[in-house]
Amino acid sequence: MIQYIIRRFLYALPILLGVNILTFILFFVVNSPDDMARMQLGHKHVTEQAVQNWKHQQGYDLPLLWNPQAEASEKLTETIFYQKSMSLFLFDFGISESGRNIGADIKQRMWPSLSIALPSLFVGLLVNISVALMMVLFRNTYLEFSSIVLCVVLMSISSLFYIIGGQFFIGKLLKLVPISGYDTGLSAIKFLILPVLISVISGIGSGARWYRTLFLEEVEKDYVRTARAKGLTETQVLFKHVLKNAMIPILTGVVVVLPLLFMGSLIMESFFSIPGLGSYTIDAINRQDFAIVRSMVFLGSVLYIVGLILTDISYSFVDPRVRLT
């Protein structure tokens, strides 16, 4: 088991290297640091001296891949690729273009992101599964048909409208909760209710439909027929047998996204002005702060790979047939 995990982590290295090379190509080869300097400093009327200063300040005045002027091993290390991309492997995110420490920022902004993402995920899961179970329980009735139609309708509404509508009706007209903002500690709860509620509602459509197909697949299996033949009621069959067996795909589906919750939700956080990593990323995109975007890309792929590994491990826990070797 431990051997397997170590091997998986070693497999992750080439993938992360690939991610790094890709971002390196995007950020430094397609556009030279000169282009970025001009963009940051304003397009026209920039003196050559100002561009050089900016590049030196950001550490972009080194050669890209190979430094012929340096000594021995420094030929490789005194380059942009080594200093900007490889240092990410040690989770050294460096300094953003506005001069802040990215690593410290990420650590600080991670918690607000989690405080909104975790409740959304678990409340959403609970609601989706219960709706899906109801749909399976009442299958082949008008109740099921109309709830399927409702699901498709809910799915077809853009998440932006859920947010705008929720903010308008609950926040502005009914004045039940503040429209946006964030606070530390327990007083954050009143700011979190609305975003969590909205993300749960906007997820019902696709979520309930997805779980319904999972349950329906289970319902047709032999052991369910056996359970019915033994004289169990339909509710007993559903909750005791079907739900338990459908938990395997549900759990593994949840485990994949767990690490990515740290990244936060981009639109939710920016609409509700929650100082999490999602709004951090959006701000960076809008300010065209390449250093932050680069770090977030790396962080995101690390978390994704961690998610994949966790999925495999959780498989072996919930399904005894799966053995990791």
Partner: peptide, 27 residues
């Protein structure tokens, strides 16, 4: 390998990075 690498980058960020690059190129 190619698709795991591409998949592991959060798609919004990849789109953002590419669009930023297109903007720089266009300007």
């Amino acid at each position: 390998y190619i698709y795991t690498t591409l998949n592991s980058i959060p798609s919004v960020l990849l789109i953002a990075a590419s669009i930023l690059m297109v903007q720089v190129y266009m300007s």
